[in-house]
């Protein structure tokens, strides 16, 4: 069974939401990324969303864009990232889903990209710039291999499209809490809880919520209704803040911050 499915089953019996930290692979370097994944797991994270840096991201705000830029300037390549994932797999079975741009998948070809990803130990992909109407081939391929293509739903997605996406969805649905791009926000939209409840009624598949989730209070609020809480920019901001410090110090600070979010999410 795919690690993502297994994890959500496990959490369902515990009646706890999944905590899903996002980190950019290669910022400040891949060794730190690997150690952060293990640290997050130790602190109680359930699934890792691993960002594959891209030169022209469409869904990311300034914090994640800057982290992509730093990672790319260091020469981070997809092959190095997959090697790092294989290293993580020697020590951990935590589910890892990679956020990747379609350009990167297309350049390799679906078949080769998915095979390489699976061999390294990834459990799924989210591809923010790939419309659901265009991904039939990739979906079928993923289904055959029990690999997961995680789809997005935004507050602006029409009911008709929500139904269509929910039918195709694999692993979990990624609900975007705000209209816009990723980033740290003081306040989540007023209707977010209501929107998550509505979406959960329309599908059997777990619903994880991200974009703008920045504090342990946000995590608590989202975790009380959703099946998963995703935090990206707020964590990447901590990594940026401590990026030039020795690795153990960075891991300490960022791990501590993630720990607070986890306590919030798990209530």
């Amino acid at each position: 069974m795919n690690r993502i499915d297994k994890k959500f089953q496990e959490l369902k019996t515990k009646k706890k939401p999944a905590f899903i930290p996002f980190i950019t692979a290669g910022d400040p370097d891949l060794q730190t990324t690997k150690d952060l994944i293990l640290e997050f797991e130790k602190r109680g994270a359930d699934i890792i969303e691993l960002g594959i840096p891209f030169s022209d991201p469409i869904a990311d705000g300034p914090i994640i864009q800057a982290s992509y830029y730093r990672a790319l300037m260091k020469g981070t390549k997809v092959a190095h990232i997959l090697d790092m994932v294989s290293e993580v797999r020697k020590k951990s079975e935590i589910p890892i889903v990679s956020m990747v741009s379609y350009s990167t998948v297309f350049k390799k070809g679906y078949q080769v990209f998915v095979e390489n990803a699976m061999r390294a130990g990834l459990d799924g992909l989210t591809i923010p710039d790939m419309p659901v109407e265009e991904n039939h081939e990739l979906f079928e391929l993923a289904k055959k291999h029990d690999f997961k293509i995680v789809c997005f739903i935004a507050p602006t997605t029409t009911e008709h499209r929500v139904t269509m996406i929910a039918q195709k969805a694999q692993g979990f649905l990624y609900y975007i809490s705000v209209v816009g791009i990723t980033g740290v926000r003081d306040k989540l939209p007023d209707d977010v809880i209501q929107n998550i409840r509505k979406l959960k009624q329309m599908t059997q598949i777990p619903v994880a919520v991200g974009f703008g989730v920045s504090t342990s209070e946000h995590a608590r609020m989202i975790g009380s209704v959703a099946d998963g809480v995703i935090v990206g920019s707020a964590i990447m901001r901590e990594i940026e803040r401590h990026g030039k410090e020795p690795e153990e110090k960075l891991i300490g600070f960022v791990g501590e911050f993630a720990g607070q979010l986890i306590s919030g999410a798990k209530g």
């Binding site: 022209d56 390549k77 998948v105 297309f106």
Partner: peptide, 10 residues
Amino acid sequence: MLQDEDGQTL
């Protein structure tokens, strides 16, 4: 597009 082997824009 001008791209590298990972599909990154050059």
